[in-house]
């Protein structure tokens, strides 16, 4: 497929998990890709090599997007590396469990600040730098990887859910502001997906003993969501098939 030939994407948190599947899918459909990572350089190099194997340009850029200056640097270096960016996937994120105190009452102001920065402020910083040059492209796409947490608001993870809710609000507002510039802004909200982050979460919640894979049988359609399920929704939203779709959220959670 060559649906995304000539398009240039930045995927934050693209070295592992959902981000990695999104990078692979955009590249196999023809896009050149900047892969942002924070700590795992070897994972970033692996997926970059895979993208190059598909005949596409791949650039890896280290940045902690939750730090404003680093997010801005990432956006500027991405433009330099590929000439322009017309697909932005705000995927980088951290779970409340990783931060340490998932209950609202126990979470410290610093915990909450960190989650808001990673999801909401980072998305804003990247959009702020990238949207102006995206207006020059034939078409621009911004996809926010949110979470069903911003709809279900279950116990534990309230600070994470609040950060995702803020990120979604940013998306819905931006969609209206930039429609006139042919920039599409949409949200993909995954449910439980088989990734390291989700593995950590379900272990914390005591739902499994060894691995998230134990939950497959009781999951929708008898399987956990896979990163490829999310990549499929992202690819659809950025494609010509979705050229009349903006300001929408697709939940990919098996219902």
């Amino acid at each position: 497929m060559s649906e995304f030939n000539g398009r240039k994407a930045l995927v934050t948190g693209g070295s592992r998990g959902i981000g990695r599947a999104i990078v692979r899918r955009l590249a196999s459909d023809g896009a050149d890709v900047v892969i942002n990572y924070n700590s795992n350089e070897s994972a970033a190099n692996e997926i970059a090599a895979e993208v190059r194997g598909l005949g596409r340009h791949a650039v890896i850029i280290q940045a902690d997007v939750s730090v404003q200056k680093e997010a801005e640097r990432l956006a500027n270096e991405s433009i330099e590396a590929l000439g322009s960016i017309d697909i932005l996937v705000n995927n980088a994120g951290i779970g409340a469990t990783a931060v340490g105190r998932p209950h609202v009452a126990e979470a410290t102001p610093e915990d909450f600040e960190r989650l808001m920065a990673a999801h909401a402020f980072a998305s804003h910083d990247l959009c702020r730098v990238l949207v102006p040059q995206m207006r020059e492209a034939d078409r621009g796409d911004i996809v926010m990887i949110s979470s069903i947490a911003a709809q279900s608001f279950g116990p534990t993870g309230g600070t994470y859910a609040a950060a995702k809710a803020a990120m979604e609000a940013l998306a819905f507002s931006l969609a209206k502001e930039e429609r006139g510039n042919n920039i599409h802004v949409n949200i993909v909200a995954p449910g439980l997906i088989e990734t390291d982050m989700a593995d950590m979460m379900v272990k914390f919640q005591g739902r499994v003993t060894d691995s998230i894979a134990e939950l497959a049988d009781e999951s929708p359609f008898g399987r956990l969501g896979s990163p490829d399920d999310i990549a499929g929704a992202v690819a659809f939203l950025c494609s010509a098939r979705a050229s009349y779709i903006t300001n929408q959220r697709i939940t990919v959670a098996g219902g």
Binding site: P220, S226, I250
Partner: peptide, 11 residues
């Protein structure tokens, strides 16, 4: 691509 999507509405 839509195999894990159900119970959803897309405008």
């Amino acid at each position: 691509d839509g195999s894990y999507v159900t119970g959803q509405r897309l405008y």
